[in-house]
Design a protein around this nucleic acid. Structure first.
Length: 428
RNA sequence: GCCCUUGUAGUAUAGCCCGGUCUAGAAUUCGGCCCUGUCACGGCUGAGACGCGGGUUCAAAUCCCGCCGAGGGCGCCA
């Protein structure tokens, strides 16, 4: 079976009139008009009209929508509304027939519901709206890498199978590792900090895992995190890095992904910078003025963040959280040890990222672990690296899936993840 | 773990509140016939559904209970 093609569809154009071409794709639409027929064929680069006339009508034998075809034909001028050229077919080969009925309608005239689309996710990629989301996601990843690499960050890969569930906090998935208890990593936190010792500025974009039975549009059991850690940077420095990543993502996709925005039906708007920076203490005052009283040291609940989000509808940093709300490795402020050098990046009520300056002194780390009722001996593998000349460092982790929802203005992370994993969904 | 909503052809829906008018309607998809410029092609025609189990009633798609599935919210989420 010859599956070669001379052109991608986007490479075809009206100046090629009279030229013989071979291309492939899937049949989007098929309109038979007696002794002639029109079909529209799409590949990943675009869509093209194919015309069949007279004796060639037998070529349509057994042809149906969504089947994969290879078209041999000649470019000619078109009277079509949406095409200025078309291909007159001399041969149509069906390479793979699509069965009927299909579980969803990939043309998108009728939008199938999210459950059906996730159950048939591969076919959902024939829907141009869905495909556009994942084309955008790819651009976003490329943009983030470009921004970080320009700033001397080195991309790393840390283990996802880890030997101890020592950090506390979220529940981890356990698994059997040749007879030993192991866990799926919930974050690269300890490894990325260690890497600053020699690579100074590192980042990782990877899946992490959390065994919480969350049922919301913003939590998944398996999610993609963008993490950075940088030597000789304070928390405000890595906030600047984060801000430029976000702004670059919006700029790049807004300017270079017009087709995708059109298919999705959403116009990406570049946020104004610098992002507002609100301290935890200021946030308490703002909430107090809305008659919401919170004691210093209390965590902000979802409802509180929603109230704050109404006052700050776009991107803003929430900084200087109380130490007692932060994990053991966070550094305190010099002028007020009750406060931390930490921040969250919010988009309205939605938390996109959190980070801060880390402790780099091993003795301080040991005593902080004890304060938080964690056992320093179970951190010895980590703590020993801090005796080897660990530079002061800061970093953050950002939920990529959440950033995607903000970018395209939707409210369910399942839309922007190929095969989402949540407590009720393990397949496909 | 808790709360709310929901389940009708392949898809997406009308009907449900207020039981009988439902032999369950329209769209799209699919099959057949007609059509040489369609472009959501058109015309004629055909096929296709009340999640499962129980109950109430003369009568259940419609009301009640259970199960299963789905969507959303709260909580959890260093």
């Amino acid at each position: 079976m010859d599956i070669s093609r001379t052109h991608l569809i986007e490479e075809l154009n009206s100046s090629m009139e009279g030229k013989d071409v071979i291309f492939g794709g899937w049949v989007v639409d098929l309109r038979k008009l007696g002794k002639m027929a029109f079909l529209t064929v799409r590949d990943v680069t675009g869509m093209c009209q194919v015309i069949v006339k007279g004796d060639s009508m037998s070529l349509l034998e057994g042809l149906n929508r969504q089947s994969v075809v290879r078209i041999l034909g000649k470019i000619q001028a078109s009277k079509a509304k949406d095409f200025d050229f078309e291909v007159s077919a001399t041969e149509i080969q069906v390479l793979a027939k699509a069965e009927y009925p299909l579980p969803i309608d990939p043309i998108g005239r009728l939008e199938s519901d999210i459950d059906n689309r996730l159950n048939s996710r591969a076919l959902d990629m024939r829907n141009q709206k869905t495909a556009s989301i994942f084309k955008l996601r790819s651009k976003v990843l490329a943009s983030i890498r470009e921004t970080l690499i320009k700033r001397k960050f080195i991309e790393i890969n840390t283990p996802k199978i880890i030997g101890s569930a020592s950090e506390g906090g979220a529940d981890l998935f356990g698994l059997d590792y040749f007879g030993q208890k192991a866990y799926l990593a919930q974050s690269p936190q300890l490894y990325k900090e260690q890497m600053t010792i020699g690579l100074e500025r590192v980042f990782e974009i990877s899946s992490f895992y959390r065994a919480e039975k969350s049922h919301t549009g913003r939590h998944l059991s398996e999610f993609t995190s963008v993490d950075i850690e940088a030597a000789m940077m304070d928390y405000t420095d890595v906030m600047d890095v984060l801000e430029s990543i976000v702004v670059d993502v919006f700029k790049n996709t807004s300017e270079n992904c017009k087709t995708e925005q059109q298919e999705i039906g959403y116009e990406i708007k570049v946020p104004s910078s610098p992002f507002e920076r609100v301290t935890y203490t200021q946030a308490l005052e703002e909430l107090s003025s809305m008659d919401i009283k919170i004691e210093f040291g209390e965590d902000l609940q979802d409802s509180h963040l929603r109230s704050l989000g109404e006052k700050h509808p776009g991107f803003f940093f929430l900084t200087d959280w109380p130490m007692k709300l932060k994990p053991f490795y966070i550094h305190e402020k010099d002028d007020d040890p009750k406060l931390s050098r930490s921040f969250d990046l919010q988009y309205g009520y939605l938390e996109l990222s959190s980070g801060g300056r880390r402790l780099h002194d091993p003795e301080q780390l040991r005593s902080r672990l004890k304060e938080q009722d964690l056992d320093p001996t179970s951190f010895e593998e980590h703590l020993k690296t801090f005796g080897w000349g660990m530079p002061p460092h800061s970093g953050w982790g950002m939920g990529l899936d959440r950033l995607m929802t903000v970018l395209i203005g939707i409210d369910n992370v399942r839309e922007v993840v190929l095969y989402p994993r949540d407590p009720d969904r393990l397949k496909p």
